[in-house]
Design a protein around this nucleic acid. Sequence first.
DNA 1: GAATATTAGTTGTTTTTGTAACTAACAAGG
DNA 2: CCTTGTTAGTTACAAAAACAACTAATATTC
Lengths: 146, 146
Amino acid sequence: MTEKDDFTLQDFLPFLLNRAAEESSLGFQRHYKDRYGMLRTEWRVLFHLGNYGQMTAKEIGERAKIHKTKISRAVAKLAEKRFVTRTRDESDRRAEHLTLTPAGQSAYRELRDVAQEFDAKLCRQFTTGEVAILRYMLRKLAGIGP
Amino acid sequence: MTEKDDFTLQDFLPFLLNRAAEESSLGFQRHYKDRYGMLRTEWRVLFHLGNYGQMTAKEIGERAKIHKTKISRAVAKLAEKRFVTRTRDESDRRAEHLTLTPAGQSAYRELRDVAQEFDAKLCRQFTTGEVAILRYMLRKLAGIGP
DNA sequence: GAATATTAGTTGTTTTTGTAACTAACAAGG
DNA sequence: CCTTGTTAGTTACAAAAACAACTAATATTC
């Protein structure tokens, strides 16, 4: 069975990437899940709004490569939680601009700080150079800008 | 909004890892999906059996950190496709040993070769040293072996 | 060696996701 | 303008994942 297998699943990049992603997500998940009852997409939308300010659903989707139905549902949940407000664009009444409410901003700030610390903790087990290479490679693999 | 934000989502490791994982999985997915109608877990189980030989569901779950219900359903599908056979362990009749049928082995070999080539293609955009660092870091992040 | 606890694997139910089809608003070409 | 095409976002339905409860076999303990 293991005749000429110099190739193991443990080395297969998509597998490794998935495992690493899952493992690293788990630790952070409980913060937005337990504390705010959020789903991953909700947190990501919150994060984008907090980070880049007012955006439309479409812009968020493009930036984070999230499908529009996921965003639509996440925004609905966030609006229900009174974390975002929606305002129609008067020059193009199909689009709506999303902004964080004060409550949303405060949740964002808290989660951003946790995320920052979490990220730092992950990085601490590597050298600065290694982390730089990792980010560079992941960005390239993810097809995210320069 | 963007007051003191030196921290962007695009740099957050769990996000980057997830994006890279999703992106790289997508390219490989169509091979096992289109050609064999498999799901990701099915492919992973197939791969483990092909790679390590006879295993129990529990062993696969431990090695790949897949939940037992997912494995149970994947094995059921694979058995339905006549890719694996199950044999009860006579000394512990709760467990069953899974092995690939000839058809399963041939599917495994084909997908393994595709995976190998796919992996190589992913790596080609980086230097050998970079890839080594990436694998090392991902393994560490994933909590996989040495 | 009966009562209790564990373990391997399965099944059922609920959430979440993926996909397709939809509505409403806009754009362009004739 | 008015048909045709496109776009932003939603909704409905199907596929998949998560979680809990289950069965059957084995260990443990008193």
